[in-house]
Simulated assay, not measured.
Amino acid sequence: MKWSAKAIKHKGENRIAVYFEKNADLIERIKKIDGARWSQTHTAWHIPDTEENRVRFKITPLSHTIPSEEAQVQIEKFKQWMRSKRYSENTISTYSDALKSFLIFYREKAISEITNEDVIVFNNEYILKNKLSASYQNQIVNAIKLFFVTILKTKIDVDKIHRPKRAKVLPNVLSKEEVKAILEAHSNLKHKTMLSIIYSCGLRRSELLNLKPTDIDSKRGIVIIRQSKGKKDRITPLSSKILILLRAYYEEYRPSTWLFEGQRKNNKYSDRSLEEVLKKSIKLAGINKPVTLHWLRHSYATHLLESGTDLRYIQKLLGHNSSKTTEIYTHVSTKNIQQIKSPFDDL
């Protein structure tokens, strides 16, 4: 079984991302490593960045991963430039880490001397050689392009840096019966409400955790998602069944600052705790699939499409910039496929 690993920065923490094709045995093995977690952002399992784990996954020792002094200065300038443009901290971290990998590779070379040919060599000798994903390569390209646009006297021709051809991967979708089993598995009202809102509104994990009590507009029957991906506000319909669930939840927990708070009042519910809530639900529901929170969002979109909702409305509900992003759900919808009669039936 082929796998690859690389050091990453995830939510301000040094981690090691491990990439491999979906395999139940490998998933079970990596789960046994202390601190192993799944990241939807990186689409990979990730573990603590320790010397032991670096040796285990054949990653360069920490002492060899420091960029040159010039690169450190330029990376910091790059971060400041992105902050001045109000990029999200997550994007700043992703881009600066991607650029750091590139500049470490050319540690002995002046940045002003780096050329397009160097980018091609990096792709072949680092990305492909280490079997890193096309998605990570795309992050590197984004970072390089953005960085060199802001640097003078460079030999890089930004417009000639090509992007990798992306693999067409279909989103993972659950049946309505599976979703129902997951949502009804928990007896804990808060846990059930959180998972139910993610599915009923098609929310990203961060969008759920950033909700405030005032974002639930029961009179208009909508949920307001503020400053989500791309710094955009949007609204989604509020199911009458969810409203009943929310009222029961509010009566019991009385949230203050955030709609879903942790054990301490006014503290936002944590990402990791939410992942554990889903993990427990999957186990209780008896579903033997590596379900993530994003699967609920994918399932919401696909079930809307199968019920006849126009793709343009689904695009707005999900907050997609491009209709092409939403169109992928047409490839997993079974509505029309089920109407096709197999020639095997006529044999």
Rank of each mutant, 00 (worst) to 15 (best):
E177L: 12
E177P: 01
E177H: 12
E177G: 07
E177I: 12
V179H: 04
V179E: 05
V179Q: 03
K180H: 14
K180A: 14
K180Y: 15
A181Q: 10
A181H: 01
I182C: 06
I182V: 13
I182T: 01
L183V: 08
E184G: 05
H186S: 15
H186G: 03
S187I: 10
S187E: 14
N188K: 11
K190R: 15
K192F: 05
K192L: 11
K192V: 06
K192P: 01
K192G: 00
K192I: 04
T193C: 08
T193A: 14
M194Y: 08
M194V: 09
M194R: 01
L195R: 04
S196V: 02
I197N: 00
Y199T: 00
Y199I: 06
Y199G: 02
Y199S: 03
Y199F: 15
C201Y: 05
C201G: 13
G202Y: 00
R204F: 11
R204S: 10
R204M: 11
R204E: 11
R204K: 14
R205N: 12
R205G: 06
S206E: 13
S206P: 02
E207Y: 05
L208T: 06
L209I: 12
L209V: 11
L209A: 09
N210E: 12
N210V: 02
N210L: 07
L211E: 02
L211R: 00
K212W: 01
K212G: 05
K212S: 12
T214R: 15
D215T: 05
D215L: 04
I216H: 00
I216P: 00
D217Y: 13
D217F: 13
D217I: 14
D217P: 04
S218T: 13
S218Q: 13
S218N: 12
S218A: 15
S218M: 13
G221N: 10
I222D: 04
I222C: 07
I222L: 13
V223W: 00
V223T: 07
I224D: 01
I225Q: 01
I225V: 15
I225E: 00
I225W: 04
R226T: 05
R226A: 06
R226W: 07
Q227P: 03
Q227W: 04
K229F: 09
K229M: 09
K229L: 08
G230H: 08
G230Y: 03
G230K: 07
K231F: 09
K231Q: 14
K231W: 03
K232H: 10
D233F: 10
D233S: 10
R234Y: 07
R234T: 07
I235R: 08
P237I: 11
L238P: 02
L238D: 02
S239R: 06
S240Q: 15
I242R: 03
I242Q: 09
I242N: 10
I242F: 11
L243R: 04
L243A: 06
L243P: 02
I244R: 14
I244W: 05
L246S: 06
R247S: 12
R247I: 04
Y249V: 02
Y250I: 14
E251N: 15
E252P: 02
Y253C: 05
R254P: 01
R254A: 13
P255A: 12
S256Y: 12
S256W: 05
F260L: 10
